[in-house]
Design a protein around this nucleic acid. Structure first.
Lengths: 220, 220
DNA sequence: AAGTCAATAAATATCGATTTTTTAGTCGAA
DNA sequence: TTCGACTAAAAAATCGATATTTATTGACTT
């Protein structure tokens, strides 16, 4: 017995539960950037043991969401405008590469997954589920690159970026810009296997958001 | 009181000691790719507790040297020709970017660190210290990119590559090719701030090694 | 008033034991 | 023989307690 997706009602391990909670708390800013993360405090907050918390924090290190300083514990990764711009640059380079590779290996099955992901994203526009569906759409774009490490990097960078969105605006709320149209352009170009057009549209999408966020983050 | 470099005689924490040992064992193949890593077994091997071992393994996950499967422990990251080629491709893209940025920000101080790193590497050619000095030279090349995340990725990928060298040849032993000359070309171009030439030389260096390793790894 | 140093408090790191979960075997029924 | 349910052994995950390390405080010197 298992659910449709990976989210079963009872989480498997305490470590995994702690990992997901902490990760979410960092992404949405509940645990502010740069903040000291005390084991005892988190243990009580999550109502679990110290070992799962420690292990979860160690794992979050992989995602660059937590920093570990030997002998003096953990802290939420600091945020800065420079860091945000670094993330944006890396994303543009790596997603460009991944998207081109995805398209190069295009198949009907991938095309269909893409259309489906896009449809589902539109379906939940404006709801809480959008955040997840949006990531899924973007990751589906890259999912055919046949390069697991590259996909992992992109996924990581995507999450790091989310944090800055919350930092700037307090949510996944999008601005006046017509995001939906941008998504359609990317989708169409990808389905038509036009790598150059798709890549330009994708990077345009990121850079516009990046510019907007940069202005909001000027004080960081 | 502290030593010249970061290697003090008494390691700070048990976790750090375990991390360094395990990392080294994986890189040189003492813990073969894909192998199950049992806590109890490693605990005895390193003569330490289970907690430091677990935490060290969690940290090695960041480096993509260890895989963690929820509820069923850890294993050394598997190796394959496809994975090797993926690493090579990513390295070429990311190091190219990092090197160009380094050169774009070139200063006299960086130049000097570079010359020094190169000199030290030549100095220890043929000894055990070469491996470390070689990495230091390459990382110094990228160290001026003013992009910590990019440097981290490059460092990670460098280490992953080392493992394949050991897998293919059983050591840092270099072949007939004149590696030293290649290093000089890269150094010279970098010092002259000629990004195109430096990048071409660097990628050439990697691709030649990559080709050689690929043939050796055909059976993976 | 600034700086040291020792004593104390707080937090991290580590250990050893216990609980769960997975894995490997074994036995019997189809 | 093959499949499945059951059992025993192994391993992972987790807990609670202890040992170490770092951070803080305040009296004492210069």
């Amino acid at each position: 017995m298992n659910m449709l997706d990976g989210t079963s009602s009872t989480e498997t391990s305490a470590t995994r539960a702690a990992y997901l909670s902490l990760r979410d708390m960092i992404l949405v800013g509940k645990l502010p950037a740069g903040e000291k993360l005390k084991i005892e405090q988190l243990r009580k907050l999550l109502d679990t043991g110290a070992s799962p918390v420690r292990e979860a924090l160690s794992l979050l290190t992989s995602d660059m969401l937590v920093e570990r300083i030997d002998q003096r514990g953990f802290r939420a990764a600091p945020a800065s405008l420079a860091n945000f711009e670094e993330i944006l640059t890396l994303r543009c380079t790596l997603e460009d590469m991944a998207l081109r590779r995805s398209i190069a290996h295009a198949t009907a099955a991938w095309e269909e997954r893409l259309v489906l992901a896009h449809h589902r994203m539109k379906r939940v526009a404006g709801t809480d589920a959008f955040e997840e569906a949006h990531k899924l759409f973007h990751m589906t774009l890259l999912s055919n690159a046949q390069s697991p490490m590259l996909e992992r990097y992109c996924s990581q960078l995507y999450d790091l970026n989310i944090r800055y969105r919350y930092l700037a605006a307090g949510g996944a709320r999008y601005q006046s810009r017509d995001i939906a149209a941008e998504h359609v352009s990317i989708l169409d170009a990808a389905v038509q296997r036009d790598a150059d057009t798709a890549s330009i549209a994708l990077l345009h999408h990121y850079r516009l958001t990046g510019e907007y966020l940069s202005t909001q983050l000027a004080d960081l």
